[in-house]
Design a protein around this nucleic acid. Structure first.
Length: 346
DNA sequence: AATTCGGGGGG
DNA sequence: CCCCCAGAATT
């Protein structure tokens, strides 16, 4: 039996039911694929439900404000996905009357849709013969064929993409693509898969040669950089605070935060006081400065470790216009800020 | 070809 | 502490 037939047979028995399966609604497939980029199903599922509930059609999503889309995306990370999701919804409504293009070639032109997502939508929605290549597929192919080419290189991508395309079941690309991903996710799992019950354990190169735990090969990422964040949490007598929008490119673009002072090294009370003196807005105002967290809160991102202090600035009246504390939950904020808001309990 | 985008969970 | 996750865009 061919590799593809074994995969689809396994899938016919082990298929899980998800709300984006058993539909060919390209809006739902697209939404699920964007949410699931670099995201486990368990984490993404509640967000998918929330988006479908708030935006049942692409027209609803296109009509929304970006701030509302980001608020709904809050906590899921990689926020460019939400911005691109919204932009593409508007684009597809404006240019295609709400209908997604039905080929890989046209889909990949859209913001937020790369090789994987274009292949997924084209095959699942329109039965185009184009193989998906995600982390699960890399793992299965590298183990089954015993390929030690690093997967996070240009050569690795070409090698595995070609192989995935070669073994694609041309008669049923939609089922095949979902089968190979589900198989990689659940049977050919990253750590300690149960190869004793694997339908490929007679032919898998990695199993035969004892390489299951070493494949796939991935080049190591460089170490994350340390940063020092000081958030200024203003609290006025009238119950207002200050949030600002992050407009620069970089992390958390278009999300909100308390006014931020980033420093080269860890900051103590006196250092921060001298920093605040540079704020002309605060010059003639009377305020009390206290540190909320004695130890730094370390928020870990893929490429940055944020050593964070929250400074409480109690003040009679804000230097410029603020927002009422009971409105704070209307703004999309990073998880780091959200956790503080819950802990501080204004 | 490298780097940068988040956050949660497993071992 | 390491790793991985239904990757894409930018440099």
């Amino acid at each position: 039996m061919s590799v593809a037939k074994t995969l689809t047979y396994w899938y016919s028995i082990n298929k899980r039911d998800f709300p984006w399966r058993n539909t060919s609604d390209s809006y739902k497939i697209w939404l699920s694929e964007i949410i699931l980029q670099q995201t486990q199903i368990k984490q993404g599922l509640p967000y998918y439900e929330a988006f479908i509930s708030h935006f049942p059609t692409i027209f609803d999503l296109a009509k929304a404000k970006e701030s509302d889309v980001l608020k709904l995306w809050q906590g899921l990370g990689y926020y460019s996905r939400a911005r691109n999701l919204h932009a593409t919804a508007k684009y597809v409504v404006e240019n295609f009357n709400g209908h997604f293009p039905n080929t890989y070639k046209e889909l990949i032109k859209l913001k937020g849709i790369g090789d994987y997502t274009a292949s997924a939508i084209a095959s699942i929605c329109f039965n185009e013969q184009t193989a998906v290549l995600d982390g699960n597929v890399y793992r299965f192919l590298s183990r089954y064929y015993g390929i030690d080419t690093p997967i996070n290189t240009t050569t690795g991508f070409k090698t595995f993409k070609t192989l995935a395309q070669d073994i694609l079941d041309k008669d049923n690309p939609a089922e095949h693509n979902q089968a190979i991903m589900d198989f990689g996710s659940r049977q050919c799992s990253p750590s300690s898969p149960d190869c004793s019950i694997c339908p490929f354990n007679k032919t898998c190169v990695a199993f035969r040669e004892g390489l299951v735990s070493t494949l796939p090969i991935k080049l190591k990422a460089k170490k994350p950089v340390k940063k020092y964040f000081n958030f200024l949490v203003f609290v006025s007598d009238s119950g207002e605070t200050i949030l600002e929008k992050r407009k620069e490119k970089g992390i958390w673009k278009n999300l909100y935060q308390f006014p931020l002072i980033e420093t080269e090294k860890d900051t103590d009370l006196n250092m921060l006081k001298s920093k605040l003196k540079a704020f002309t807005l605060l010059k003639d105002l009377d305020y009390e400065l206290t540190l909320f967290n004695d130890k730094n809160i370390v928020h870990k991102l893929s490429h940055q470790h944020l050593h964070t202090k929250f400074w409480i600035i109690s003040i009679k009246k804000l230097p410029n216009s603020g927002i009422p504390l009971n409105r704070i939950r209307d703004f999309a904020v990073p998880v780091l800020i959200e956790k503080f808001i819950e802990d501080f309990n204004f």
